[in-house]
């Protein structure tokens, strides 16, 4: 049998192998991925990693500095900060994931439909995207969350993080939509789409079976960056007092009263923010790595 040249062997590797190979070349992306896995384990298994509960007050031990008893110290009500950071992470990460999912779904559907059908459909959706882009996002979110906090929505408990996550996502889909629309426009005229159309495939089938898989790479990268953005948005809103409400801890609202405690207990302001920072930087590196690994230009090199 003829010996294959190394280059040929390379071409025989599956797409997944190429992906992992490229991804592992980006060292910081791997560090980011590992960091995220560790944090998710800590947050999901929170009760395993702490002796305290997030709401247990201990007024004799208010503002204890970090020690072997309280790794991150205690807050103004003597609650263990490490415990609250772990449980707060559950909410912060859930809100981030949920908002990102909302933004990606809305953005992908709008992008696909307007890129594929063009014409007046595209005109309407493009105008809609423009309208959403013209709104000062954070400012509108302050009003929206005030509304949601006081409105009674059937099936959703007051103080739930769901409504906040949904509105953050509902105001963040525009970049995904633009990205998907652009890629879909390019895909629409490609031969494999024409071939599918010729054998009588329906528009829905062409969109979801033929075009969607081909725009998935940019969507994955955008989703990662969107996740980082959503986590920052939630923490900012909660910091200002307009997000998830106390006593439910999130990394953002744990920071909200710390400005007045800075003289006595600076650690209350340091640790929750540090978690946001670590998670966001890990996700950003992860996104960088995914971009490199999913971009065919890099594989060719």
């Amino acid at each position: 049998m003829k010996q294959l040249s190394p280059k040929k062997q390379d071409a025989r590797r599956s797409l997944w192998q190429v992906f992992w190979h490229q991804f592992f070349k980006h060292r910081m992306a791997v560090v980011g991925a590992v960091t995220m896995v560790v944090i998710v384990i800590l947050v999901v298994g929170a009760p395993l990693f702490t002796r305290y509960t997030p709401f247990k007050q201990d007024l004799r031990n208010r503002f204890d500095p970090p020690s072997s008893q309280h790794w991150m110290g205690t807050d103004d009500l003597g609650r263990d900060l490490w415990t609250r950071v772990l449980y707060g992470g559950r909410i912060s990460l859930s809100v981030g994931l949920l908002s990102m999912a909302v933004a990606v779904v809305i953005g992908t559907v709008i992008g696909l439909v307007s890129g594929y059908f063009g014409g007046w459909v595209d005109a309407v959706f493009s105008r809609l995207t423009e309208i959403f882009l013209s709104v000062p996002r954070l400012f509108v979110l302050l009003v929206l969350t005030t509304f949601l906090r006081q409105a009674k929505i059937p099936g959703i408990q007051p103080g739930s993080f769901w409504p906040i996550a949904l509105v953050i996502g509902a105001l963040a889909w525009m970049s995904v939509a633009r990205l998907v629309r652009g890629t879909t426009l390019a895909m629409r005229e490609r031969e494999f789409v024409q071939a599918a159309r010729m054998i009588g495939a329906t528009d829905g089938r062409i969109l979801f079976r033929h075009i969607l898989p081909n725009v998935s790479s940019p969507i994955i990268v955008a989703a990662t960056l969107g996740l980082a953005g959503a986590i920052i948005t939630e923490s900012g809103l909660s910091y200002l007092g307009f997000g998830v409400q106390l006593p439910t801890p999130t990394w953002g609202n744990m920071l909200s009263n710390t400005q007045s405690q800075m003289l006595t207990a600076p650690w209350t302001a340091i640790f929750p923010g540090m978690m946001i920072f670590i998670v966001v930087i890990a996700i950003n590196y992860l996104g960088d790595g995914l971009r490199d690994a999913l971009d065919p230009h890099h594989v060719e090199k």
Binding site: A228, I232, S235, G236, Y239, L240, L255, T258, Q259, M262, P266, A269, I270, G273, I276, F277, V280, I281, N284
Partner: peptide
């Protein structure tokens, strides 16, 4: 810097 939550950075500066 891009990953820094801007309000937290403000708190650190104050500290």
């Amino acid at each position: 810097g891009q990953s820094l939550p801007v309000f937290w950075f403000g708190l650190l500066l104050i500290i």
